[in-house]
Design a protein around this nucleic acid. Structure first.
Length: 1170
RNA sequence: GCCGGAGUGGCGGAAUUGGCAGACGCGCAGGAUUCAAAAUCCUGAGUUCCUUACGGGGCGUGUGGGUUCGACUCCCACCUCCGGCACCA
């Protein structure tokens, strides 16, 4: 296509801008910095792949460039940088395949993509260019990691604080350690009785009393970056673990489509979950497209519901044959034909069936499970059988068990009498009687606290030790006790019960039998009042101790509790083993093993068909008192809620399917609206079959039952999130190394900041281990760099090994917008003052805020594919930096704009084969194949190389039409946010427009330019209107209509065939942001002596836009009948007059009754007639 | 399945947010220029019916209903396509 010489012009002006430094933007503090309102316009930086630039990239880049050029002409200081997200898997894979070092391929790819980006003439400040692979860049990525590592999330402040603050608070006693290893505020005990021997609330420990090693471990549990052994997505083919986000729906790796398995592995995690609430709340502060906000909210997945406790019933052969109204008042019958007891039973019970306690040493799970069935009661003067679980990190060693046992045996004196104690499988079992005035409730706390203290004092280099989860039971028969005492006395090992097998079995069986008799007798005659007291005591204790004798479920529908007819545990649930009966053991074991071995793919592929297996155990529905079976099924996941559910088949689709398949009872508890079947009805309704709650609407019911359950200690309000902590390590070479060493003596040790950057070692063999075996172990490539791996510990100077994992690709992109602010700074990731200037609104001009956003970058443009991951991760890092005082805004990106995807058009024949453009005849209504004349189907699809017709290479388009045409075409295609097809056949249209502009101002061989000596009045009005329109459209990012308006203007000029040089110049300024090269050239031809990039944006004259007369549409009964000309200032009467006298209108009104006259001033008139 | 977004000429799309549907561009047709073509310039066109013509009427924004003097725009139900999430209790 003939026309102006865009190739030469574009080269000329790109060189000019580069040499003149036209777009270099000085920072505050630099000598050529000028005080002005700021505008920070950010593009999502590209990943420099080997393929080069895609047509999608320049779409967003052109949009931001237009806005930036517009802002400069409006007097803003504009920050508009570009860089490269150059670490990552594809670069490494490409390098592996081609046997070239990723550093080389990355450098090559960057060079190519930068050449392409520069061809477009974008007004980037190239002096701020960065690459995430540059050691001077990732030095600060590592630095931020250290900040994460050295911080914790202070729940009181709801913010990140240095970990040193936590340590200080713990050492000062402001915070103490509770029995679960949690850090809690030290509250003043309400009663003296709640304080234990060491002045703490019962069940708490002072941090300072812990070994230094234990202290360190405790602190590690609170860091924002921590190592955790958690189930992760392991991809053996890629030889790396992947984030959830990098695994596809089909359970394959995002890259390469390899199978991914769930495996427990030690990995670095970032505690993003600490920020869920703030990540959610602060979405209100930013100007983002609502759909993107919704996607982020969905990803975080907050739901409000309740946790409900279900008591477990019968597991080790003890099963109820009848049950009462509540677990507390249930009565039991047991059978037992054990004849090996050393002492005869003191109470006769009816024994049926077989022996639940087979010969041999009973295991702790057996005992615990049995204990769970027994009621908790607080009876004055009773003797108790108590079981504690030792919650240390490892199994106790033999000497430690003795230590614990002795500690328990010697725990007596003023408060209680300890008859016996033993330790078995990390469980402590004791027989204790509180002395007068003491309650067992308080005693158990003291015992825990005391014992833990004693043990922790003497344990070295092991994790902290706690006692938790007590099960205490009453032994009240004095005669039995004396027999027992006699037995102990007769025993060669006095009181110690070290011949555990016999002594223990004896102890247990008798204790249980006595207990049963006691309870039965007790409930036979106790008053209601006493029963309530017992209940209260029970629930209080559970709150304080945590419970293992019950299963806690999370539900968003506590209102359907009466319809919970069974329970389901996730296969990974820790209680599955304990619960399962011997009869079901095989089946459950097999099922759990199978679930663990399934890849994600297999597990999702089976969505259609529910699977599961019965554990043999039952729980008690807390509101109906009915026993319900406990199942294991993989449709319940360990990672969400508590890993256990109450199943309400009547009102949950999945439970309904499951119950139908396994023939479980389905009970309706919600009444749907008229005509709707209640089977599987999941929406709100009216409660039925729900006892006292019948008739309540769902929402109200939820509130009420949650409160009622809480009052009884059976549940509480709970909030859950789908968001999980961020798996932050990869077993790859091409990523940021962790600034961490592992020292045998000191454990995990961070490098000092002064030693950064920790650069990647130069390696010849950086290939990751690849295997098809799901059980292959990760072998990070860095492990092969021996010299690099072996180092000294910065803390003790001893031998240490470096962390072998690298950071994921997201790391570098989490903060690059901050580095652009001050990219050369070698002392700080970014200067404080500079950060404040660019990240906060401000500037002297009154209209500065027109383009600015309230915080962070003023505009961030990129594809919606980053709607969750990158944007969530960045916000998280930014908030941590904000909490620690390194940045001044709560959010990084004030305004976000998502460009739509550019699709390709493919023409396919009947068989679905894509036909190349050359073989298509477009002359008819429908495209047909040139040879076969077969009609072709036009389909719009994602661009890919396989669709011959749809893949577009920017290089080719620019070579043929130039950058200005490319820019203009992509902006003219449609709204920026919409997905739209690239149609190569439309490109010449905008090119033609630019040629028309050229001929209009510069002329060509055949025709002179249209420049006249004076303003053309018609052109003037049109130009004023255009000036307003283009300004408004740019601010609103409606570039397509701005371009259409400019085309209209040019058409007007062609009709008028003249415009003045001044008018031409004003027009060029309007077009320049869109098509800068041609405008610069024509500007020069019209006498400009420098770039127009900083010429003031043209003003328009409001008065000259107004038309003298307007055309008024006239409707009759809503149908357009005519148009009349009225003066612009016409009043209502004049408009009506003009309308009614119009012949066609008059004809339509003829003989009809005029009912109503609608007059919209200067817009329209409508007559309503009958 | 759930959550978003979108359906307007042969095609990409426009419509001041309830007031002239189809701006602008592609493609198409006709004309001018040319020996001819390309390029360029001008003109035409949603569709259908009546009319030789000039003109004029009907129908038209995925489908069906509703609100309104008036609906591409608001409400209800449904269909199709695109994107995201997906056994999240």
């Amino acid at each position: 296509m003939a026309g102006y010489d865009f190739t030469a012009i574009e080269k000329k002006w790109q060189d000019y801008w580069e040499q003149a430094g036209t777009f270099r933007q000085p920072n505050p503090g630099e000598k050529d910095f000028v005080e002005a309102p700021k505008l920070y316009v950010l593009d999502m930086f590209p990943y420099p792949s080997g393929v080069g630039l895609h047509v999608g990239h320049p779409e967003g880049y052109t949009a931001t460039d237009i806005l930036c050029r517009f802002a400069r002409m409006n007097g803003y200081n504009v920050l508009h940088p570009m860089g490269y997200d150059s670490f990552g898997l594809p670069a490494e894979q490409y390098a592996v395949e081609h046997g070239v070092h990723p550093r080389e391929t990355t450098a090559r790819n960057i060079a190519n993509i930068e050449r392409q980006i520069r061809m477009f003439g974008f007004s980037y400040d190239w002096s701020r260019r960065l690459a995430t692979t540059d050691p001077e860049y990732y030095r600060w990525t590592q630095w931020i990691f250290l900040k994460l590592y050295n911080s914790w999330f202070d729940p009181e402040a709801q913010a990140a604080r240095p970990i040193a603050d936590l340590e200080r608070k713990l050492l000062s006693g402001q915070l103490v350690v509770d029995m679960n290893g949690g850090v809690v505020p030290a509250v003043a005990a309400r009663r003296i009785a709640d304080i234990d021997l060491y002045g703490l609330q019962v069940g708490q420990m002072k941090f300072s009393e812990l070994e230094s090693d234990q202290q360190r471990r405790l602190l590690d549990e609170y860091r924002l970056a921590y190592i955790s052994e958690a189930p992760v997505n392991w991809c053996p083919m890629l030889g790396t673990v992947l984030a959830n986000e990098e695994v596809t729906n089909e359970g394959k790796s995002d890259r390469g489509n390899f199978p991914v398995y769930r495996r427990a592995m030690k990995q670095w995690m970032l505690r993003i979950t600490a920020y869920t609430e703030r990540l959610l709340e602060d979405l209100e502060k930013v100007d983002w497209p609502e759909p993107i906000k919704i996607m982020q909210r969905n990803w975080i997945g907050k739901s409000v519901g309740a946790e409900v406790k279900f008591e477990i019933l019968g597991s080790t052969g003890v099963s109820p044959v009848s049950s009462g109204v509540s677990p507390v008042t249930s009565s039991f019958k047991y059978y037992c034909d054990d004849s090996t007891r050393p002492f005869p039973p003191l109470v006769s019970l009816s024994f049926e069936g077989k022996n639940p306690y087979p010969p041999g040493e009973p295991s702790s799970p057996d005992l615990i499970a049995a204990a769970r069935n027994l009621p908790h009661l607080e009876i004055p003067g009773a003797t108790y059988f108590v079981t504690f679980h030792c919650a240390g990190q490892e199994m106790l060693s033999e000497p430690e068990r003795d230590m614990v046992m002795n500690a328990c045996l010697h725990w007596h004196g003023s408060k209680c009498c300890v008859y016996a104690a033993t330790v078995l499988d990390n469980h402590v079992h004791m027989i204790v009687r509180p002395l007068e005035g003491e309650s067992m409730d308080r005693l158990t706390h003291s015992i825990k606290s005391f014992t833990a203290h004693e043990i922790n004092k003497s344990r070295a280099r092991k994790g902290p030790f706690w006692l938790e989860e007590s099960f205490d039971h009453i032994i009240r028969d004095e005669r039995w006790l004396s027999d027992f005492t006699k037995y102990i006395c007769d025993n060669p090992v006095k009181r110690g019960l070290t011949s555990r097998a016999d002594a223990y079995k004896w102890l247990w069986i008798n204790a249980e039998e006595l207990l049963i008799r006691d309870s039965a007798a007790h409930f036979g005659h106790e008053s209601e009042e006493y029963r309530r007291d017992a209940c209260d005591t029970q629930s209080n204790r559970r709150d304080a101790c945590g419970t293992q004798e019950s299963i806690v479920v999370y539900t968003t529908r506590p209102d359907t509790l009466f319809g919970a007819t069974y329970m389901v545990l996730a296969p990974e649930h820790e209680m599955v083993g304990d619960l399962t009966t011997r009869e079901q053991a095989e089946a459950v074991k097999a099922y759990v093993a199978a679930a663990a071995n399934k890849s994600e793919l297999e597990r999702t592929a089976e969505t259609k068909e529910k699977t599961g297996v019965f554990t043999g155990a039952h729980a008690i529905n807390p509101v109906t008192g009915q026993p319900i079976p406990i199942w294991v099924a993989d449709y319940v996941m360990m990672g969400y809620g508590t890993g256990a559910i109450m199943a309400v088949p009547a009102h949950d689709t999945r439970d309904f399917e499951f119950a139908t398949k396994f023939n479980l009872p389905i009970v309706q508890v919600v009444q749907p609206p008229e005509g709707v079947d209640w089977h599987g009805y999941v929406d709100d309704g009216i409660a039925v079959n729900s006892g006292p709650y019948d008739g309540l609407p769902t929402a109200e019911f939820k509130e009420k039952i949650t409160a009622d359950l809480a009052a009884k200690g059976l549940g509480k309000r709970a909030v859950n999130y789908k968001l999980r902590d961020w798996l932050f390590s990869r077993q790859r070479y091409w990523g940021e190394p962790f600034p961490i060493v592992h020292c045998e003596r000191c454990g995990v040790v961070p490098l000092p900041e002064s030693s950064l950057p920790l650069t990647l070692p130069d390696m010849d063999d950086f290939t990751p281990a690849s295997s098809s075996d799901p059980d292959a172990l990760p072998a990070p490539p860095l492990g092969k760099a021996g010299d690099w791996v072996n180092t000294v510990c910065p803390s003790c100077g001893g031998a240490a090994k470096r962390e072998l994992n690298t950071m994921p690709q997201w790391a570098g992109s989490c903060w690059y917008y901050l580095r652009y602010l001050d990219p050369q700074n070698s002392h700080r990731f970014c200067d404080e003052k500079i950060e404040k200037y660019w990240m906060n609104p401000g500037g002297k001009r009154h209209d500065a805020a027109r383009l600015q956003s309230p915080m962070g970058t003023d505009l961030y443009v990129g594809g919606a594919e980053h709607a969750v991951l990158h944007l969530l991760y960045s916000r998280f890092w930014h908030k941590v930096l904000f909490d620690l005082g390194y940045v001044s805004t709560a959010e990084p990106f004030g305004k976000l704009f998502n460009q739509g995807m550019i699709l390709g058009i493919a023409y396919r024949d009947g068989r679905g084969v894509a036909i190349p453009l050359e073989s298509i005849d477009f002359t008819g209504d429908k495209p047909v194949h040139k040879e076969t004349r077969e009609p072709l189907i036009t389909s719009v699809e994602k661009m890919s190389k396989s669709l011959k017709t749809s893949a577009v290479n920017p290089d080719d388009v620019i070579a043929q039409y130039g950058a200005d045409t490319f820019r203009l075409y992509e902006m003219f295609m449609g709204p920026l946010e919409a997905s739209k097809p690239w149609n190569t056949r439309d490109v010449p249209g905008v090119h033609r427009f630019l040629n028309r502009v050229w001929r209009m101002i510069a002329g060509d061989e055949e025709r002179p330019a249209m420049i006249a000596g004076q303003d053309n009045p018609e052109v003037e009005r049109s130009l004023n209107r255009l000036t307003r329109k283009v300004g408004e459209d740019i601010v609103a990012m409606k570039f397509n209509t701005a371009i259409a308006a400019m085309m209209e203007f040019v058409n007007t000029v062609y009709k008028a065939a003249s415009l003045s040089a001044g008018q031409a110049r004003r027009f060029l300024l309007l077009l320049a942001p869109f098509a800068p090269h041609i405008c610069e050239e024509l500007w020069r031809q019209l006498g400009g002596d420098k770039s127009l990039a900083r010429e003031p944006w043209p003003q328009y004259d409001e008065a000259s836009i107004a038309e003298e007369s307007i055309e008024l549409p006239v409707q009759v009964n809503g149908k357009l009948r005519a148009r009349v000309q009225v003066p612009a200032g016409a009043d209502e009467a004049a408009m009506l007059q003009a309308a009614m006298t119009e012949p066609k209108v008059a004809a339509a009104l003829e003989g009809k009754t005029l009912v109503k006259k609608i007059v919209v001033p200067l817009k329209l008139i409508n007559f309503v007639v009958k």
